[in-house]
Design a protein around this nucleic acid. Structure first.
Lengths: 126, 126, 126, 126
DNA sequence: GTGGTCTAGACCACA
DNA sequence: GTGGTCTAGACCACG
């Protein structure tokens, strides 16, 4: 569970992404309490300030809310989390399609290559 | 052709990517001469230092070579460019698969959602 | 009647403000009894500790007094409540004038814009 | 120009507000470069991290943009700044009206009291 | 030179 | 106990 200090994305964002993924996969549900800043800091092995920043970012995205003196909670809005998943999914696909298009692939080739990737691990895609 | 100062990737890398894409799509071929550092700097509207770094990076990847007093040329090695394309393609697919997996999708769902994306633009992906 | 956990003001102050407003508007009069701490806590949905602090704050301002075993009462001093209203009013106006001045407005423009705001809801204020 | 360490608003926000006011009053114009983080830190007498946060907040509001290695600039969008002014103005008026209404004043009384405030400083408002 | 991130450790208000 | 702010000082990538 160590942080990757050399990735391009800042640590506080990597942690935010992890939390979002947990929401999207329903490992974290509406109304659930996140670990306290200090506890999360210990769990992830980073400075509490970094977690603070993560939580602030999540709150800015309106997918988490903090109650003074009580803690930080997943927002009570299941619909918003659903939309979040759809949005993230579209973003991921969109990036993939753009990248592949820039390499000169047609839509059919993209699908074919993806299937190929699954079947062969690394086979004869061309 | 302006540089995107907001993207997460450094500008010199953005430009390197653009050049590599041109090779992979055969808009730039083995032996072709790249624009001079100064000219490229003007074309892209960035500091010549930045282009310098772009060319250095491409040379480090061994897909470009600088001939003293003559300029910078795409390496005379068609096979290497082919391999480059395959490598890039695998990277792109691999990133896509990882991202989708983190969102909780199975391989079949990935393929289905991709096809869905093409058919509907943004339809009812679940 | 729920507490706003997001506002910049602490909850105990928000509640104190609400009570003061009721006095100023004569919905609460000299000598009236405030709800008990527990009852108020239930009404507002916050921790009794928080209400305790609200009442303590009001007592510190000398606009409420606690009689042991009987409860908390609005002070028997109509004049003081009048003065409170005038003071609050001056504060509100003063803040408004400062804010508008910081935006570069003259006194005449402030009056004009206020009138404008009433007439048009949101019209062509310049 | 010292920072007020005891105000309710955090310092980084107070500084952000000051900068926004300068834009709204056209003391800072579209495209102008803000002082560097370090320089501003010296000017205001706070830690560079605090200014960093101020600039990050302004960028999040999309009224400032940072160019890597060059500095932080007022966004090239005069219209947006105009809208910002109108928005701020509406907010200020709206808060004033709400506060006065909570004290039990009618719209006419608000205007009258404001004028009174200007004429007398602190005269016989009731 | 620029902004961005991170740590360490401190203090605060709030519930 | 909680989150929020701030300082001090460090290191990094970028242009």
């Amino acid at each position: 569970m160590g942080a990757d200090f050399h990735a391009s994305k800042p640590i506080y964002m990597q942690i935010a992404d992890k939390i979002i993924q947990q929401m999207v996969r329903h490992e974290l549900k509406s109304g659930d309490k996140l670990p306290s800043v200090r506890e999360m800091a210990i769990q992830t092995g980073v400075n509490p300030n970094t977690i603070q920043r993560t939580y602030a970012e999540l709150e800015r995205m309106a997918i988490v809310e903090t109650k003074r003196g009580q803690g930080t909670f997943v927002v009570e809005n299941e619909k918003l989390i659903q939309e979040l998943k759809i949005q993230l999914q579209k973003d991921v696909i969109s990036i993939f399609v753009n990248n592949m298009r820039e390499l000169g692939f047609s839509e059919n080739e993209m699908v074919a290559n993806l299937i190929c990737y699954f079947e062969e691990g690394k086979g004869d895609m061309k």
